[in-house]
């Protein structure tokens, strides 16, 4: 049932999957801890929103756009001095998490900003009329109403993170994508490459399915 070539390389494959999990896991963490607040702030600074602030919005917007418009491969290389400064080295899986976390924050923050539009304006107005503080408005109204959209955005982001992680081989980050290139493509084991691609596809399908199911389950509107 399981192709021989996968059994032959199984220990390398497991290690690679582990590296992908580390890189994507830290990316998700950064998306939640940095991307979510930035996206929320961006949303609130928009014209007509509660913290309307043209200057804050424009400058933050510019930074997010800049990071997101870098071709990711070039961003990773461009960031090497910074990564070395932060991690002490620019090589390896741990170092690879740094550019992953940067792109993840920018990527998710943009999607969060869009997702929060899903909270009806009237509900936020009602919140203000009740004397809610900004913190209460965010946690008791905004996130509650937009939670399905936030989950779907995280699903989309996670799938992008997996895609981003496949090129981290350039800085020795490893991961399943790097495995496919080095063992499959570069050693002319096309069958191995195809099997690895199938593994990634199954992952992505599962994440998509889980995300949609959860989003549907928590949407009571």
């Amino acid at each position: 049932m399981i192709p021989d070539v996968l059994i032959e390389y199984q220990s390398e494959i497991w290690v690679s999957i582990g590296e992908t999990f580390i890189m994507v896991g830290f990316a998700i963490l950064a998306a939640l801890l940095v991307g979510l607040p930035i996206g929320t702030f961006l949303f609130l600074c928009r014209k007509g929103q509660l913290l309307e602030n043209q200057i804050a919005f424009s400058s933050l917007n510019l930074i997010v756009n800049l990071i997101r418009s870098f071709p990711f491969l070039l961003l990773v290389i461009f960031m090497i001095p910074f990564t070395r400064f932060v991690m002490g080295t620019a090589i390896g899986t741990a170092a690879a998490t740094v550019p992953m976390m940067i792109i993840a924050s920018a990527h998710y923050s943009r999607l969060v900003e869009q997702s929060l539009l899903d909270a009806p304006k009237g509900v936020l107005e009602a919140a203000v009329s009740m004397g809610a503080s900004i913190k209460d408005i965010i946690f008791k109204f905004l996130y509650v109403e937009a939670r399905s959209a936030l989950v779907l955005s995280m699903t989309t982001s996670t799938i992008s993170f997996i895609s981003y992680s496949t090129i981290m081989g350039v800085v020795g980050g490893g991961g399943i994508g790097d495995f496919a290139i080095r063992y499959g493509y570069q050693q002319f084991r096309t069958d191995l490459m195809i099997y690895v691609i199938i593994i990634i596809l199954v992952f992505v399908q599962f994440i998509q399915y889980a995300g949609i199911t959860l989003a549907r389950k928590i949407d009571k509107r």
């Binding site: 009237g122 509900v123 107005e125 009602a126 009329s129 109403e145 009571k220 509107r221």
Partner: peptide, 14 residues
């Protein structure tokens, strides 16, 4: 000073 709106403005997920 509680307020009531034309569009109700209830939190749909609560």
């Amino acid at each position: 000073l509680a307020m009531v709106f034309q569009g109700y403005n209830l939190v749909g997920n609560k």
